[in-house]
């Protein structure tokens, strides 16, 4: 993984609440960071190519758009099947985040996490069934943990 230098980090900090909604937003970022606008965009292109920046765009708030059912589906998949299962999940097109995490037996047997967002519980369960179908026998057990309350939600915060 490419290491970010202090200027890259300053660009991320300056843009993490969003690009300014002004005609030339990268000029505003450049002024804040203290470099030329062309360097801001060049560094952002480099961070995209390095995979540090996933994408730049409008980040939808699923909840406000009516996707009130936020389900964290968790899957017990053999370690050797995780890559294939992860690829199968992301290929479905509706999973917003898909991560492998450690299983912590006996408390927690699930190693793959896939977030689904739906307008109601029936739709959410349909999405989970579609994931189960895509995984087939790779799925040794799963469940869905719905959020009952959002207690805190802010974007990823970086400090310089």
């Amino acid at each position: 993984m490419t290491q970010l230098d202090s200027i890259d980090r300053a660009i991320i900090v300056a843009t993490q609440d969003g690009l300014p909604l002004v005609p030339r937003p990268y000029d505003a970022v450049a002024e804040q960071v203290g470099i030329a606008a062309a360097e801001v965009t060049a560094r952002m292109v480099a961070m995209i190519e390095a995979g540090v920046i996933r994408r730049i765009g409008a980040v939808p708030n699923h909840y406000a758009l009516g996707y009130r059912w936020n389900g964290m589906s968790v899957w017990d998949v053999a370690d050797g099947d995780v890559a294939a299962a992860g690829a199968a999940m992301t290929a479905l097109g509706f999973v917003s985040h898909c991560y492998q995490r450690p299983r912590l037996l006996p408390h927690w047997p699930y190693s793959l996490f896939a977030m689904v967002h739906a307008r109601n519980q029936d739709d959410a369960e349909l999405l989970v069934r579609r994931i189960a179908q895509a995984l087939g026998p790779m799925n040794r057990g799963h469940r869905v943990l719905y959020s009952t309350r959002i207690l805190k939600k802010t974007g990823l915060r970086l400090t310089t």
Binding site: D17, L21, A58, V59, L156
Partner: peptide
């Protein structure tokens, strides 16, 4: 209106 959280970069987790 809250429909868009922000217009900006989505950072790969674990990078920063």
């Amino acid at each position: 209106a809250g429909c868009v959280s922000r217009v900006g970069a989505v950072i790969k987790p674990g990078c920063a």
